[in-house]
Design a protein around this nucleic acid. Structure first.
Lengths: 189, 189
DNA sequence: CATGTTAACTAACAACTGTTAGTTTCGTTT
DNA sequence: AAACGAAACTAACAGTTGTTAGTTAACATG
């Protein structure tokens, strides 16, 4: 159990506030009050408000990129790759509920790192799309607009951070399995 | 073709800016510049910044409520009700792409109308849930966690505003049908 | 004990925030 | 021609914003 540094604590508390009100609506004085210190004291630990956002978002985006690369490299079939993607989102989202809110809602407020973030995201989507296309080609997956499929699955997975906290005593394996069933087999009997 | 009032124009332009940067990050001076006037001049037409947000969000939320009530009142089977809900979201979202962004991301910045909005939203979700439960009871719908089904379908539909603008020359009927197929029957072959 | 580091503090800054008051311009109606 | 209303303007406000500078207290290391 490694000790959390003061900077990490600030980033964690900031992410929580960012989830509730959004990056722009949270002031450094809000954050300081939540930390029990004065706003100026924050700057002993962090470079800027912008730097906090960058730390939150980029580390998460890189976690997704890494996970996707491992899935792509494996030689499982397409449905199993999709199941792995679902597990990846459930895992990362449940471990960092607050950060996921920033990733989804406040990425446009990244400044220097905006281009880098957008590249990671579009690479991720391209990988996702190519899994679906391979599944269509091999006959594993039904042949209807892969873009709509991707949109549907990915927005569900990207919104997990909203929904997971509402369920108490949730079992993450159960959740992954249920999502797999619903997203892949639908709800029709 | 009814003429757009100056106030409606301001609300429309504001919604566009809110979509790009979020409510909090858009200043009245930003909005004025986009309108080609000075910030103070906005107040000849609108009461406050808050009032703009309220106008955008509440009218949309009421549109959804009205649509859901009609669907509930009809005596179609559950799957057909779900198809109607999908059509409702596609229709409203495509007609008001910018407003949907505020509805999804900036509702927490409503002040006096926050409680009202939250009531509309939870009523909507309750209606949705009861359709799913009826479908499970009648054997139309597979019996797995209705909350996960609702979450999955509803977040996809709520995110349409992000995705529709990326597709040029999209046919809205096609989109509704494709979404129905994917959300209800899944992607498995 | 002396020294250095960490992390808090107070005070202040220049810029920006939403908004109000009062004024001007200009086309339309009396 | 006079009066009116709509819609723009300038100027200003009080409060808030992110951030910097310089200082102080507590504690660990030489």
């Amino acid at each position: 159990m490694k000790q959390e540094s003061r900077k990490e604590e600030i980033v964690r508390v900031a992410a929580k506030l960012f989830k509730e009100k959004g990056y722009s609506a949270v002031t450094m004085r809000d954050l300081a009050k939540a930390m029990g210190i004065k706003a100026a004291s924050l700057y002993n630990h962090i470079k800027s408000k912008q730097d906090i956002l960058k730390t939150i978002i980029i580390s998460l985006a890189e976690e997704f990129t890494e996970g996707m690369q491992q899935i792509q490299a494996s030689n499982e079939n397409c449905i199993d790759k999709l199941n792995k993607i679902i597990e990846l989102h459930v895992k990362i989202s449940s471990q960092n509920i607050y950060g996921m809110a920033s990733l989804n809602n406040d990425w446009m407020h990244l400044e220097e790192k905006l281009d880098y973030y957008q590249k990671l995201r579009s690479d991720y989507e391209n990988d996702f799309r190519s899994i679906l296309n391979a599944g269509i080609a091999s006959g594993e997956i039904v042949n209807v607009k892969p873009d709509v499929m991707m949109f549907s699955i990915l927005t569900t997975l990207r919104s997990l951070y909203i929904w997971i906290p509402k369920k108490e005593d949730i079992n993450l394996n159960d959740l992954s399995n249920t999502l797999s069933q619903i997203l892949i087999n639908g709800i029709n009997k």
